[in-house]
């Protein structure tokens, strides 16, 4: 937890000296979708913090687990209390490198993002293909990837095994703006 704050502070302090090299959004969107025989479950989070540092091509994302809103209150309760245990692990984070970021311009192109994803206290290295474009001053990023619940030690009880998929599709959409404060 502390290290995330430290990272953010470093970003922010550095921002003041160099100006237009950091891009940030405080209201990025992440959605997840679980497709299972009995029901499909989806949840949205519109409060995702994402920062791109163009000086060293790094990206850092912070997600509050309790910000995921579900259609049914009971699903949200189970998600927070039983599956991701959001009292114990209130945040998910991603920190990684943009492998071919220098080429980003007005036309949308695929950028490989490689880094560490931490959910439920478990960290995994992942590589994601993201669509990126730089339009005016904003950097738009979107895409999707699959996560396997077992990888992050999220246990689904046998009773609801037909209600919740083992692999969850996560899609994201961030509209980063230059940060200067």
């Amino acid at each position: 937890m502390k290290s995330i704050i430290t990272i953010l502070c470093c970003f922010l302090c550095a921002t003041m000296s160099t100006g237009q090299e950091r891009y940030l959004t405080k209201n990025g969107t992440i959605n997840f979708f679980s497709k299972a025989p009995i029901e499909n479950i989806t949840a949205d989070n519109n409060q995702v913090l994402s920062i791109i540092d163009a000086t060293n091509n790094q990206m850092a994302i912070s997600i509050l687990m309790k910000s995921f809103l579900f259609k049914k209150a009971l699903m949200q309760e189970h998600f927070n209390e039983n599956y991701v245990e959001s009292d114990k692990y209130p945040k998910a984070t991603f920190k990684g490198d943009l492998l071919n970021f220098d080429a980003v311009n007005e036309t949308v192109r695929v950028v490989k993002v490689k880094g560490i994803l931490t959910i439920h206290g478990i960290s995994k290295e992942i590589t994601i293909d993201a669509n990126m474009a730089k339009i005016k001053e904003a950097i738009l990023v979107d895409g999707e990837f699959i996560i396997n619940l077992a990888d992050f030690e999220i246990e689904i009880p046998a009773v609801v095994a037909n209600n919740i998929a083992k692999n969850i599709r996560v899609s994201f959409n961030f509209n980063h703006e230059p940060y200067n404060k």
Binding site: K26, Q47, L49, L64, K66, S67, L69
Partner: peptide, 12 residues
């Protein structure tokens, strides 16, 4: 309240 990133966040 759902938590704190750079800012404290309130939803709904």
């Amino acid at each position: 309240c759902t938590g704190y990133l750079m800012d404290v966040i309130l939803v709904k």
